[in-house]
Every structure is written in C-alpha cells, then in structure tokens.
Amino acid sequence: MSSRAPSYPVLIGGLTVLSILLFAASLLIGPAAIGFWDSLAALIAGEGEAATLVMREIRLPRAILGFMIGATLGLSGAVLQGLLRNPLADPGLLGISASASLGAVIAIYTGLSAAFALALPLSALLGAVLAVLAVQALAGAHGGNLTLILAGVAVSSLAAALTSLALNLSPNPFAALEIVFWMLGSLQDRAMTHVVLAAPFMLLGWAMLAGLGRSLDALTLGEDAAASLGVNLRRVRLLAVFGTASAVGAATSVAGAIGFIGLVVPHLLRPLVGGRPSRLLLASALAGGAVLLAADVATRVLAPGRDLKLGVLTAIVGAPFFLWLIYRTRRAML
C-alpha cells in the first residue's frame, strides 16, 4: 500500500492543482451563462458592467469562502484527530460547528451584529470554544471513542435545540425558516463583506494550527513519550482548541454548520501521507477546500435556483462513510 502512495510533494502539488481547478469552476459556473473568456475578462479587467458585478461581487466571494471554509474544516479535523488520537474527531461530530452556529444565531437575531459587526465571528468563536471545553470535560483527557462521540452528540443536540429555540422565539416570521441554514450551511449570495469579516479569524486559526505538526507527530507515541520529547502538551492543547474555535467559528458564522468534511478528508488522506500528522495538516486543508468547492459547484449544477444546502451534499457523501468507519472501528476493537 505505502509503496503505491505518491510522494509528499506530488500529493501536495496534485491537491493544489485540484483546488485551483475547482476554484476556477466555482467562478465559471452559475445561473448567469457568461462565456469562459468573457468571465475572465469581466473578473480581471471589467469596469462596472453587469458581468463584472456578477464575477467580482457574487462569484468571487463565494469561491473564496468555499475554499477557506473547506480548508478550515479539513485542517481542524486533522488537528483534532491527531490531538485526541481519535479517528472520529471532527468539528461537526464534536458539536463545535453546532455551538458556533448557536453563537452566530444569538449575535444576529438579537441585533448585536447589526450594531457591531465583529460580534458575529466573536460570538461564534465563543460558542465553539465552549463546545470544545465541554466535550473535553465530558470525555476526559483519555476518553475513548465512545465517550468522545457521546459527548459530541450531547453538545451538538443541545446547541441545535437552543438554535431552534432562539429562531422560533424571534418575532420575525422568517427567522424560523432559517434554522435550515444554520444546521446545513450554504454559500448562496455571500458577499465580500462576509469574506472581510470571517477571513482574518480563519487565517488566525490556521496560523495557530499550522505549527502543531511536529507535536502531533510526537503525540502518536503517546502523551508521556511526547512530553519526554519536549512537547509542551498544555500549549499544544491551547493552540488546538483556540485555533479550531477561531477558524471554525468564523466559517460557521458566515456559512452555517457544514458537516463531515473534517471527518472524511483526513481519513482519505492518512494512508497517502504515511500516517504522519505533520504531513496530514496541509494535505487535509487543501483537500478540504477542494471538497467544499466541489460540493458548492454541485449545489448550483444539481438544483439551480433552489439554494440546495451544502450540508445536504456533504452528509450524503459523509454519513455512509461515517457508518463504514464505525463498522471498521468496531471490528478493530473485537
């Protein structure tokens, strides 16, 4: 198996090319049929005509957010799986995304984010931090697969229920319909304002997570061995928790909770990087971005004009994978 795996530079190069191609597809595919060269001309050299507006104000922010949010989910999944040494760790399953949604919902529907724009990502970040801390407290530092997943399910359900409650209690009749957005996520008509709001927090999160590779490598030998190799476990945990919360919180605050990418992507790539967490991080980030871009293009191709939610597609692919993973994990435990 490992002999057939591509070398690391080839893998990273391939994923980069794939991401660029899907980013281009995201820019070129949409309800307004604009030709290939016309699109590029409008994007780069246009001067305020309709096609330029479509490319710069509608499709570009959507493609940027698609890649960044996918990369955030892939990277966070890889870090969480490495940190907790648990193949089932993922921002969605651990309730981080759902709690970030709750934070965002509270900021938006109380009118806080209208008064103070940064309240949106900050409130989502706070929700995400609380979720990680709650799951860690419930599952304990050495918690097994089962406790971790149960804690995640509990936190996730509670956050989802509170989100629904908040939206149902809103005096605005439309709010209750928006439960779907916060549970399944969408990039429909996201604007540059959303990029400006969320990107700094995602970049900050990436910066905190990117340096963890070596420590995660050491952690594969166990916590004691890692500590003897000079790994500061407290620092690693702190960076992982706040990095994930910052990136996933910001991503969720503008696009809702998108599941399964953080679970599936690191798994598919692990054999290709020889099981080394340090190499998995960059690969997962690139692949996560590519997967989300592909899913977002698919929503536009499969059901144009219907705002098919992203979480629907990621779950259709991700949930069967999750089942297979549980089946395999169970067999391994026997």
């Binding site: 529907y109 809103s170 540059m192």
Partner: peptide, 12 residues
C-alpha cells in the same frame, strides 16, 4: 426583528 431573509437586499 433581524433575520437573514432580507440579507439579499444588503448585497453589494
């Protein structure tokens, strides 16, 4: 009361 429903009116 705020809701996302009217966000389409805010799009640049």
């Amino acid at each position: 009361a705020p809701a996302l429903a009217r966000e389409n009116y805010q799009h640049p």
